[in-house]
Amino acid sequence: MDDDVPLGNPAESLALIERERANLERDITPDPRWMLWPWGIAWLVGFALFFLRYGPDGRVFVDLPDWLPLLVLMTLILAAGVTTGVMGARAGRQVSGPTSRQGLLYGVTWSAAITAFAVLFARISDVLPEPESGLLWAGGMVAVTGVLHMAGGALWNDRDLYFLGAWTLLADVVGILIGPGWHSLIVCVAGGGGMIVAGLIGWLRLR
């Protein structure tokens, strides 16, 4: 077909316009599955191990080595951080201008927030009993995640991301109020599950 020839039918033209817009939009947006599923999996697996080893009221559902849940959670979170960093940077290289600068600053904000809270928690968790110390770390970091997803939703005008952040924060606060042990289970199911679902919805919308 000669592509210099105009289309005769307005409906065909409008369909063509929408198709090309959707194509480029998908090509320059980091795949929501790669951005959210690694975190969802880290939370699902990591916090499940925490719940099984450090259950409510000091119960041990499965007698895992006491270092295992933290090691698994940290390893999976590190892997998730690297994955989203690489995928985000790759998408950022395709586009130049205010949006990629926003993306870079948003990414740096995550590292800054997590580092600041890690310093604070490391400083005071020693004086807390172990269950409360665990709750401080997990509850604090999940709250940071929820808040930054909400901020991301506001920044990118993305309702789904904003809702995911609010949902994560709600689950976190409910878990904190119920107490150590239950917090792990709630964050595992609602938080980790929420990110899996959000990644799926984001991907379906782009397709």
């Binding site: 316009i17 817009r21 480029l24 939009e25 586009v95 130049s96 205010p98 949006t99 990629s100």
Partner: peptide, 12 residues
């Protein structure tokens, strides 16, 4: 059409 997806001052 494709370029119209970009926000003002962004380039691909």
């Amino acid at each position: 059409s494709a370029l119209s997806v970009l926000r003002d001052d962004d380039s691909v």
